[in-house]
Design a protein around this nucleic acid. Structure first.
Lengths: 224, 224
DNA sequence: AGAATAGTGTCTGTCAGACAGTATCGC
DNA sequence: GCGATACTGTCTGACAGACACTATTCT
């Protein structure tokens, strides 16, 4: 089923896009996909797709479905950033993109599988290196800014952490997100006594004092 | 032109809603309209309407047009809050509402004219007193929260102020938004030296020391 | 003088930033 | 002991909260 041009003019295309962030080797990365189909085929873009009212329960559910389909990941937490809209941002006509960002755990980062896309890449969100489709460069900047704002506002990016981690691991992850180093004392003072962090009965060492391991608490929600 | 039911299922209705705030007698108010047409005729709601891709340049422009048409006001500043979506929130089927909030200057508050709506009311956003259409009670709460967050984060609600105002006027307005009193010394210390405030060569008095009058600077933007 | 509001000064507690110091491992 | 990393303690400056104090007008 397709609409006529006249009908197209009355109903905008509704899209969802997701900036999926993760951290590897203390570097913040964002998942980009190379588009398989027109428009903008072979251009790099944030994973996204068209809302399907017949299967999606909400915009967020739609974004979750798109991630499942295109990069085969199930994401627990999606945060809405903002919308992008207008007649000229997509060659198909008047369109709306609702942008989300999501956090993929470090130990799942390698498990992402490309599916229905030409290629995938984990890029540096500060300078992606690829020329991006549509207005996705602006979207990426907005998503990165929203993520940083949350972390600056004391939200812990525990969704990015593996099952067990040390406070130093967590600090490195925050630093990767923010793009600048943090003071150890300040960082530990701030998160000390957070109910989201649960010490576990183990420690990990090397040629140095062993570090306390933590896990995130049950039912933790980012940006709560 | 209308779509068949099948087509309806593939294209969601895209709506914009606006929580238009103002302050009168140091009370925060939000503009509600009583709906003229089905669905939810005669129920109170935030002013809103359907996106028209053939005339709107963006979602924000659409919200501006809706305010012009329904309550005859031209709004300079619109801030996006978030989206609401799903198959059951509107009886017409799968829908998306993009929520904005806006600030209407105190000295324009009486100039709002109802048009294409049954009735208008300036309600207390904390407890509107009317049973609201759709999920507009949730939307109103979200918009109020977004507005408060901005003001708590040092943004000055200068768009709510008349052309000339005193610092005490401004403080009263902030208090009305936040819902609790502020300390005079703290408030003045914080906004002292703000480039957004321009003292004007006048003062206003009564049976007391006259107060310095201010205006907002040219090109001021809220939440910059 | 007194009432009323404008505007300033100051004390205190909290917290971020900076950084030094102590603790505990392997070698 | 030494290197390395974990973890803690402390000094300082900025700032919010609380509140007292001064300033200027009208009556």
């Amino acid at each position: 089923m397709t609409l006529t041009n006249h009908e197209r003019e009355l109903y905008p295309t509704v899209l969802v896009d997701v900036a999926l962030f993760s951290v590897e080797h203390n570097d913040l990365q964002v998942l980009l996909v190379r588009r398989l189909q027109e428009p903008q085929a072979h251009r790099w873009a944030l994973p996204g797709g068209i809302l399907k009212p017949d299967v999606d329960e909400s915009l967020e559910a739609s974004a979750r479905r798109v991630l499942r389909k295109k990069v085969s990941v199930d994401i627990s937490h999606l945060e809405e950033v903002c919308t992008f809209s207008g007649p000229n941002r997509d060659p198909r006509g008047w369109s709306i993109s609702v942008l989300f960002y999501a956090l993929l755990p470090r130990d799942h980062i390698g498990a992402v599988i490309k599916d229905k896309v030409e290629q995938i890449d984990w890029a540096d969100p500060n300078k992606p290196g690829h020329r991006m489709a549509f207005d996705h460069d602006v979207q990426l900047a907005a998503a990165l800014s929203a993520l940083r704002q949350q972390v600056e506002g004391h939200a812990l990016p525990l969704h990015l952490m593996p099952a067990h981690f040390t406070l130093t691991d967590l600090q490195r992850t925050c630093e990767a997100i923010l793009g600048h180093p943090l003071d150890k004392g300040v960082f530990r003072r701030r998160i000390k006594g957070s109910p989201d962090l649960v010490p576990i009965d183990k420690s990990v060492g090397g040629a140095h004092r062993p570090a306390q391991l933590y896990r995130s608490c049950e039912g933790f929600v980012f940006a709560a």
